[in-house]
Amino acid sequence: MNVLQTILILAAAFLAVFGEAAFSLPRQLFGAQVDLLPALMICAALNTNVVTVSLLAVLGGLWFDALSANPLGVTILPLFAVGFPICLRRDLVLRELPFAQVFLGAAASALVPALCVLLLLTGGQQPLLGWGSVWQWLVMTAGGALATPVIFVLFDWCRHALGYQPQTETSFRPDREIRRGRQ
């Protein structure tokens, strides 16, 4: 199931990056495009292993940078910086709770673009920044926060649909059956 989950997450990341580049409805409505990679990273970090987290960071970052004017590879480290610590400490996270998912999604969606811009500025690039960037950052944070529980639900559904179902144990035991009436 782990391989299937990894493939599912990578396929979702591929489609998410393409969707962000092809459809600009959020940009027209709110002035900013929502990035779904941080939300996917949260899902990967809480449900899979460190290999999947690394693959998502590298491939997701490469795909994103290939379609953008970012220097190639600049998105990899921010994504990994979000996913790796969560993956290490996931036993402490109540991952089933929607509140935890929303909170982690918001934090990741806020942190990834901030780290990206920081790396760009460190590398001598001049991204388009201004007071409007604060609004864009808020939109990205809110969008990522809302998307995270939805992604969790979708992945749970996929896991149930495509994975082996655990055999449920019945509480019925024939030797403890109370027989009524005359034999």
Partner: peptide, 9 residues
């Protein structure tokens, strides 16, 4: 065919 997915370009 595509627009930049990053908000800063």
């Amino acid at each position: 065919v595509l627009r930049d997915p990053a908000n800063w370009w």
